[in-house]
Each structure stands twice: as C-alpha cells, then as structure tokens.
C-alpha cells in the first residue's frame, strides 16, 4: 500500500496532554505537514517534539525504549485502539504508511484505574510488577538446578509455554478491555509456568496469589469481550484465561492444603 502514498503526508494530531497524575487533561491539536510514510509512529512523535522544543513548548511525554517491539515500554492508544489498528504490532513498529494523507489521529494513554497517568501519554504500570512479585515465578535458588536435560519436556508443551511466555507486559490488554481487566497478562504467566513440569510444584499457590494480587490492584473482571487478544501485540490467546480460571478453581478447592 506504500505505492499509493505520497512522498510526504499531512497529519493532524490530537494528543492527550496532562501535566501530572492529579491534573485534568485535554486533547491538544498539532499539525505536521512533512511526515514521511517510512517514519515509524514514534519517529513522527520525535519530529513533533523537536518542533515543540524549538518553539518553546513542552514536548509530549511518551514511554518508549527498544523501538523494535520487544521491551513493552511503548503504550499509546491510537484512534481508540491500543497500539493502533495493525494486528500483532506495538506502536513502535507501526509506520506512517499505514495512515492516509490528511488523516486526523487521536493519541491517548492507556486508560485504567490501575494505571494512573504520570504525564501526558505515560502511565504507571507498577501494578504488573506487584502481581509478578506475588507469584509469577518458579522458586529455584541460584545454584540448585538439576541438569537442564534431566527433565524432558515434550516439544509441543515447550512451544505452548513459549506462546504464553511471549507476553511483553505492555498492558495493551488492560487498555483494550472495557473492564480494564488484567486477565490476559496474568493468565499468560500462569499458563506459561503451570504448563511446564518445573512449574507444577507451586501451581496452586501461584495462581491464587497472582489472582489475589490482581484483584487488590483494582483491575476489573473478564466478561469475555476478547478485546485483549485483539489488541495484544504478541497475539497471546484468550485460551490462557480459560486455563487460569480452571487452575484457580482447582486450587481454590485445595486451598486448605496451601497453608
């Protein structure tokens, strides 16, 4: 589709500006007349910021780091969609050739009670770290591991675990969910670790602890909209949520044994 694009594009941006967590925010409009279709979306924002600094305005704050779709830092809602409209893509991998010349683009932060806005498009996702600290691990001290080939794991199991482990913890699932649920994020970790023989020993404890932590952070509940899967840049499957619900139920029945 790049063939249809001109050498440069005119873009109107409506960007969410918010001074800090407690301040009220609003959209501000910016016009860019010389956007290259080969720019990434974030490079386009770099150009905007360069201009804002030159003219004495405050640049737009946004999170980004690796700019190759793996660190999970970038987190923009573009025209109402987390990470924009392309399937399996983070904002940093989205290129301007995917937009039309003359288009108006709305840019917003993740919106969820559990992700307070820090400034402009930057949010605080530390709730995810706290959920991980509650149980997102296999308890194995450094040095106490057996030989790596001591436990054979069927290739299919390893591949399924890898599918779930591909989560980059960006929070798009939460941003896309009408209930701001974190079920896809939590279930991806529960199912990655629970599927592997190494992770089975503390399976019950893990799922209960992570779900409790998730609830304590104020994330909503899953009501099967599956917007999370559609928004996920790593295309993590909602089947993980079913797996987690099953594991949680079983663990709850056995909870008296958890001590």
């Amino acid at each position: 589709m790049s063939g249809a694009n001109p050498d440069t594009m005119r873009i109107t941006l409506k960007v969410w500006r918010q001074k800090d967590t407690d301040a009220a925010g609003s959209f501000k409009t910016y016009y860019l007349h010389d956007v290259s279709p080969d720019m990434s979306f974030l490079e386009m924002l770099d150009v905007l910021n360069d201009r804002l600094i030159q003219t004495g305005d405050e640049p737009v704050a946004f999170d980004h780091d690796c700019r190759e779709g793996i660190c999970g830092m970038c987190s923009l809602v573009i025209n109402g969609q987390a990470h924009g409209g392309d399937a399996g893509t983070t904002v940093c991998q989205l290129h301007m050739r995917r937009f039309a010349d003359g288009q108006t683009i709305h840019v917003e932060p993740w919106r969820a009670n559990a992700f307070p806005v820090v400034r402009d498009l930057v949010v605080d996702r530390s709730a995810f770290d706290r959920i991980m600290a509650a149980g997102g691990f296999i308890s194995v001290h450094t040095g106490s591991a057996p030989d790596a080939n001591a436990i054979p794991i069927p290739q299919e199991t390893a591949e399924q675990a890898m599918d779930a482990a591909a989560c980059i913890g960006c929070g798009a699932c939460v941003a896309a969910c009408p209930n701001s649920a974190a079920m896809l994020f939590v279930s991806a970790k529960v199912s990655h670790l629970g599927r592997l023989p190494q992770g089975k020993a503390e399976k019950d404890r893990r799922v209960v602890a992570m779900v409790q932590a998730m609830d304590a952070e104020g994330f909503g509940n899953c009501t099967n909209h599956f917007e999370c899967e559609a928004a996920c840049p790593k295309e993590i499957s909602v089947e993980n949520i079913a797996t987690m619900n099953r594991e949680f139920l079983v663990a709850s029945f056995r909870s008296r044994d958890l001590g």
Binding site: A145, I151, P152, A158
Partner: peptide
C-alpha cells in the same frame, strides 16, 4: 550452570521431539 538455572526457572528453550534441549 546457566542453562541449568534458566531451564529450572521455566525459560521455554527450544526442544527436540524427544523433549531434550
């Protein structure tokens, strides 16, 4: 030792059909 440690942590390394790394 690193490979042992990481496998024990649940790092989903690629595996052969027989289940070995």
């Amino acid at each position: 030792n690193i490979i042992d440690q990481c496998a024990a942590q649940g790092v989903p390394f690629a595996r052969e059909y027989g289940g070995v790394l």
